[in-house]
């Protein structure tokens, strides 16, 4: 079994979000980068397949050299090898095209992406990749079991859960539930040492173009201060919600 996990390098969830150069560029000053949380749930699931089904787990990212620390972290968590496609991540479409060219060179049975990245929040790459490769696709995936060539996967939907079946190969969009928070693997010393010896291949990007570009960022307007209501005067809250905010 050959598994590819697509990894996105994103700012830590506690990062201050600021922009520089006339709000054109995200200010990375002092920002720590992490494995996109949805991708990490997917990576952990892949490691379970490695442990139980002798799967080979390859991690890939489309990005510049600054992304290598998180690939090393994936190797320390247990991935067998890493690939960095040496290109700026222009937009969802061009990233999917880069990944597609890797998937056409090697054949993967399971391709795992995070359901969306926590920085761009596009949720585009996994579905685009699946469509480009004409593979079945399950996003918001909270469970996946493979038996021979058959897959049973669960997808979280608005207000419920859907159970789906298809055959390999498959692309999934991972999220919490696929594994639990407590299942995430914290690399130990041995893992970190081994990661240094594992292959991290840098490959040249395929020809691709983007279909969108980000011109500028904006922060939400500063909020007015909170109106405090006396706990002994609940009627006031109800009146505010009804007459002022008009939400009840």
């Amino acid at each position: 079994m050959n598994i590819l996990v697509c990894i996105s390098n994103v700012p830590d969830t506690t990062s201050k979000i600021n922009f520089v150069e006339n709000d054109k560029i995200f200010d990375t000053n002092g920002v720590q980068f992490i494995i996109n949380p949805n991708d990490e749930f997917g990576l952990t699931r892949a490691i379970w397949f490695q442990q139980k089904n002798q799967a080979t787990v390859t991690v890939v990212t489309v990005g510049e050299i600054s992304c290598e620390p998180i690939l090393r972290k994936c190797l320390a968590i247990g991935a067998n090898k890493a690939v960095r496609i040496d290109s700026k991540a222009l937009d969802g479409f061009s990233v999917a095209e880069q990944l597609k060219s890797l998937c056409e060179k090697e054949s993967f049975d399971i391709i795992i992406c995070g359901r969306e990245s926590i920085d761009y929040n596009g949720g585009m790459v996994p579905g685009m990749l699946a469509q480009m490769l004409e593979m079945p696709f399950v996003t918001n995936c909270i469970s996946m079991d493979v038996n021979g060539n058959e897959v049973i996967a669960k997808r979280e939907i608005d207000g419920g859960v859907e159970t789906l079946s298809c055959s390999l190969p498959i692309v999934i969009g991972a999220q919490k539930g696929l594994v639990e928070e407590s299942d995430l693997i914290i690399p130990n010393m041995r893992g970190i040492m081994q990661a240094r010896q594992k292959p991290l291949d840098v490959v040249a990007p395929a020809n691709s173009f983007s279909k969108s570009s980000v011109d500028k960022f904006e922060k939400p307007p500063a909020k007015g201060s909170v109106k405090l209501v006396d706990p002994d005067n609940i009627d006031e809250l109800i009146s505010l919600l009804h007459n002022e905010a008009k939400v009840i």
Partner: peptide, 10 residues
């Protein structure tokens, strides 16, 4: 984007 911490013009 940035999980509602910002907007972008695309």
């Amino acid at each position: 984007c940035f999980t509602n911490k910002a907007f972008n013009h695309t």
